[in-house]
Amino acid sequence: MEQGTVKWFNAEKGFGFIERENGDDVFVHFSAIQGDGFKSLDEGQAVTFDVEEGQRGPQAANVQKA
């Protein structure tokens, strides 16, 4: 798993971006967030995640709040 920081996340649209430790950004969809209840992330929040190849390039999977 990688570690990163939430760059931004739009809860209304259900997606955002995580900044990886290497400085690259990776797309995150709310469906990739682990846990119960409303799935959202806060700007600046530390997270761990896997990276999978999506239809439009790399995207975060198995996102967990650190």
Rank of each mutant, 00 (worst) to 15 (best):
Q64I: 11
V47Q: 00
D42Q: 14
E43A: 15
T5A: 07
A61W: 07
V6Q: 00
G14M: 03
F15K: 02
G54D: 06
Q55I: 15
S40Y: 14
D24P: 15
S40L: 07
G35W: 10
Q55W: 14
F30N: 04
F17S: 03
V63F: 00
S31L: 08
G14R: 04
F17H: 03
Q3F: 14
V47P: 01
K39W: 06
D36V: 11
Q55M: 13
K7L: 06
V63R: 00
G14A: 03
E21F: 12
W8K: 04
V6T: 07
G16H: 00
V47D: 00
G57T: 04
T5R: 15
A32Q: 08
R56A: 08
G57H: 05
G44I: 02
D25F: 11
V6G: 01
D36M: 10
V6L: 05
N22Y: 13
N22H: 12
G54K: 08
A61E: 06
T48R: 11
I18H: 00
E12Y: 14
G54Y: 06
Q3Y: 14
G23I: 04
G4W: 02
V63K: 00
G14F: 02
N62I: 04
R20M: 08
V28W: 02
G57N: 05
M1E: 10
K7S: 05
N62M: 06
G44S: 05
E21T: 14
E19R: 15
A11Y: 12
Q45Y: 05
G44Y: 05
E2F: 15
I33D: 01
G4A: 03
I18N: 00
L41H: 02
W8A: 03
S40D: 06
E19I: 15
D24A: 15
S40C: 10
R56M: 09
S31M: 07
T5L: 11
E2Y: 15
V26M: 07
F38Q: 08
G44E: 04
A46E: 11
W8E: 02
V47F: 01
A60C: 05
Q34T: 12
N62F: 06
E43S: 14
G4T: 00
L41T: 03
F27P: 02
V26R: 02
G54T: 13
A61Y: 10
A46M: 14
E19A: 15
D42E: 13
E2T: 11
K65M: 10
V51W: 06
G57V: 04
W8N: 03
G54E: 04
V51N: 03
H29Q: 03
F30T: 05
K7C: 08
G37V: 05
E52W: 11
V47E: 00
G16K: 00
D25M: 13
Q3D: 07
L41D: 02
R56Y: 15
P58R: 12
L41V: 05
E21S: 14
G35L: 08
V28M: 06
K7F: 03
A11Q: 13
V28S: 01
E2D: 09
L41Y: 03
V6R: 00
G37M: 06
F9H: 02
E53W: 14
E52N: 08
E52F: 12
I33Y: 03
A61R: 13
E52K: 11
A60K: 00
I33V: 08
E53N: 13
E52R: 09
G57I: 04
T48D: 05
S31P: 03
G44N: 07
G4S: 02
S31Y: 04
D50Q: 12
G16L: 01
G54C: 07
M1K: 15
D24M: 12
